[in-house]
Design a protein around this nucleic acid. Structure first.
Lengths: 209, 209
DNA sequence: GTCTATATGGGGATAGAC
DNA sequence: GTCTATCCCCATATAGAC
């Protein structure tokens, strides 16, 4: 049943986040999902299939949202486009913080499962931000810079705090899932981009080669 | 023998980095270290003991270095102090990139082993940067800001790229362990700090409340 | 300190009944 | 689609000889 698959995916997402992929057993997933163990293999061809399904649907959803946003923003000024795309990225990461953590963690393991697939996703992931930056550089709205490095900088800003939710609770006195945190993160990243991209908005030579 | 313990620690650091803590078995560690399996339990009371020893010696070394640097810099201007401490942090993280990755990854797992101990280490870790910032704010050299947030920003900048060495190789065309990368990272973080801390060095309101 | 041998448990996956 | 029962492998840890 379709509901069974969803229950398994939700349970797995939760447990993978808390205990890590290798630290979670299929038996625990089945228990959390209140489903028979054998159904995991039946529906997903094993534990790794569950992980891959989670990651795939995460990225497919993000790419769909980015595509829609880009279509809606055709012809807008580069800065406006950038702000909207960044808002989307921040919101998406915060809303799906558990899977973001999972992916970032597994991605940092050199022997990661399904690395080839993941590399493909990551390049499309980066392209979502990079294309707007390139557009702005093309129109002269942004100063010339290393797009790759700016993308890395933005990603660091957004992702790192999500990797350490306890730290966010302590440092910011905010829940990583709260709207205030999303807003703060968004503003903070935009400030970073303004300094990096807009001439005379600051003296920083950050991310310029 | 002391040499045996070192061989085990080196092998474990390497394998934990590549395969993750749960993804590494004591058998593999023993094999990599060219040592009998039973010796791991004998010397470290099990696999977790190896992890804890690695983390403890990582932090103890960092704290010793920070202490020495601070003593050598007593009475210097805040910006100079800050620059030197940041240089130390960047260098240390890059030189011990494998254990940095390991710690950051395990720390992002909510059910982390030995969380209490690690929380203590992290607070001293942050204090190393925070105390210099507070000193500079006290002398008026830096503008008022949320020290915690600046520390988080700096940490994101330094740590995130190290979590994804493949990305660094691709984006920067640099080895994460190379001196060029250390220099670039150092400059980049200092730029970020200048914009955040020095009045009129930029228009950014980054990390101000 | 080091080794061999083994105890004990848990892991993922599947065959086959319903 | 779902469940039971089971297979087989690998994990960590330790007892006891050297």
């Amino acid at each position: 049943m379709e509901q069974t698959k969803m229950r398994i995916l939700s349970a797995a997402a939760k447990l993978f986040d808390i205990y890590g992929y290798h630290g979670t057993s299929v038996r625990k997933i089945a228990e959390e999902a209140d489903v028979n163990v054998a159904l995991i293999s039946y529906h997903f061809q094993g534990k790794q299939g569950v992980l891959e399904t989670l990651m795939a649907s995460y990225f497919e959803t993000l790419f769909r949202l980015v595509g829609e946003k880009e279509a809606a923003l055709a012809g807008a000024a580069a800065w406006k486009k950038l702000a909207q795309i960044v808002r989307l990225y921040v919101q998406f990461h915060c809303e799906h913080a558990a899977i973001t953590r999972l992916i970032q963690r597994e991605l940092s393991v050199e022997s990661m499962l399904a690395r080839e697939v993941m590399t493909l996703y990551m390049s499309r992931y980066k392209h979502g931000l990079a294309s707007v930056l390139e557009y702005g550089i093309g129109t002269g709205e942004f100063q010339t810079c290393s797009v790759d490095r700016v993308v890395l900088g933005v990603t660091s800003h957004i992702v790192y705090p999500l990797l350490h939710p306890q730290m966010v609770r302590q440092v910011y006195e905010l829940e990583p899932a709260s709207e205030e945190f999303v807003n703060w993160l968004y503003t903070s990243v935009l400030d970073f981009l303004r300094v990096s991209l807009i001439p005379d908005s600051g003296s920083s030579t950050l991310f310029h080669e």
